[in-house]
Structure formats: C-alpha cells, structure tokens
Amino acid sequence: MYGETNWSLRPGRPDDIEAIAELRAVVMRDDLVRLGRYDEHRVRQRLRDGFSPRHTSVVEVDGGFAGCVTMRPYEDGEGLYLEHFYLTPGAQGRGLGTAVLRELLARADEAAAPVRLVVLQGSAARRLYEREGFTYESEDPVDVLLVRAPRVPTGPRPAGRTLRGRLRPADGR
C-alpha cells in the first residue's frame, strides 16, 4: 500500500497543538469509550492544557504529519516521562511506533535516564512498550504506569546520525 517510507522527527511548534489534539481524540477514542471515560471536549483539552512544544517531537512520514510524541523530564528530576505518543491510523502497524520509540529510548540510555509512561488499561500499546523493556510499576482502574530502566549502550552511535528511518511496507515485507 505505501511501499518504503521515510520518517523523521522534527521539533514541535506551538501551531501543532490543534492537529495533535485532534489526533489524540481519534487515537484514544476506542479505549476511552471502552473504559467509560470518553468526553469529546476533555480528550482534546487535556492535551491543550499540558502541551509543551519544547518537549514534543512531530513524527513525519514522507514530509507529512504522521504523529507526535512528548518526552519531558520526570517531576522528581529522576528520568524522563514519555507521553502523547500517537500515530495517525494510516501510519500504524508498519513499524513506525517501534522505530520512533527505539530512537527515544536510545537517547534516554545515553543520558542514563529511566523512562516512565502511563498507558490505558487494556490498551494494545502496552505490548509495544513491554517488548521494548518497560515493566509494570503500578495501576489504578484506568491507567497502568510502566517504567524502563536505562540500558548500558553497547557502543557509540554513529556520528552525525539523523532522526530518520525507513519503515517496512504496509504488507509487512
């Protein structure tokens, strides 16, 4: 369907807020409805209230908007907090989420920083995070807190590495 696709991360900008708020509403709708927590206004407003262009990266595929992710310092200063990691439905299921997450985790490992995140109860995204080394820390009826300890880098990253990658085709080949 898409063939080989280039992806990149670019710094977030204040004018990205509405596209990201809308993406959040689309991507989280089914899980929030299942949990009895979907509110058409609140799902967007929670993103707007906490949006930080400084800590947000926009995921682009072939130069177009494909998602976003925020990585900010954790409240206690001990590590990083990953949030607002959303991909457009058309960008899902092709390895993009794994590629972006691995890039962010490599950065965290270089800084020897643990990474925490919250995933909704029953969300399919939890499998991705657990495959990449996140483990259970705590939960409530709606959210599950996961943490990943930093890993010792196995060698230096190539000099001049850019935040670009190749996705596998939509048919998995």
Rank of each mutant, 00 (worst) to 15 (best):
M1D: 09
M1I: 06
Y2V: 04
Y2R: 14
E4N: 01
E4H: 13
N6K: 09
S8R: 14
L9G: 01
P11M: 04
P11N: 04
G12E: 05
G12H: 02
G12D: 06
D15W: 14
D16V: 14
D16Q: 07
I17F: 09
E18L: 06
I20D: 08
A21D: 15
A21P: 08
A21L: 06
E22S: 08
L23W: 00
L23I: 13
R24L: 02
R24G: 08
R24E: 10
R24C: 11
V27F: 11
M28K: 00
D31N: 12
D31S: 02
D31A: 14
L32H: 15
V33K: 05
R34N: 14
R34G: 13
G36R: 03
R37I: 10
D39M: 02
D39R: 09
E40W: 04
R42A: 13
R42I: 03
R44P: 09
R44E: 15
R44K: 15
Q45I: 08
R46D: 15
R46P: 02
G50A: 14
F51K: 11
H55S: 09
H55K: 06
T56S: 07
T56K: 05
S57Y: 05
V59W: 00
V61R: 15
D62W: 12
G63I: 09
F65C: 14
F65N: 07
T70Y: 00
M71K: 08
G79P: 09
L80N: 03
L80H: 08
Y81S: 12
E83M: 14
E83R: 02
H84R: 15
F85C: 10
L87G: 00
T88L: 14
A91N: 01
G93S: 04
G93M: 11
R94E: 06
G95W: 03
L96P: 12
L96M: 05
V100G: 00
L101I: 02
L101C: 04
R102S: 07
L104C: 07
L105V: 06
R107G: 09
A108K: 13
A108I: 10
D109L: 01
E110R: 15
A113Y: 00
V115H: 07
L117P: 04
V119M: 05
S123F: 02
A125G: 03
R127V: 08
E130W: 07
R131Q: 11
R131E: 01
G133E: 10
T135M: 04
E137Q: 14
S138E: 12
E139F: 04
D140N: 14
P141M: 02
V142A: 09
V142L: 11
D143H: 06
L146V: 03
V147Q: 13
R148D: 12
A149Q: 15
A149T: 09
P150M: 06
P150Q: 09
R151C: 09
V152Y: 00
G155W: 12
G155L: 10
R157H: 04
R157K: 03
G160C: 10
G160R: 00
T162M: 05
T162L: 11
L163I: 01
L163S: 11
L163W: 15
R166G: 11
A170T: 11
G172F: 07
R173K: 02
R173F: 01
R173M: 02
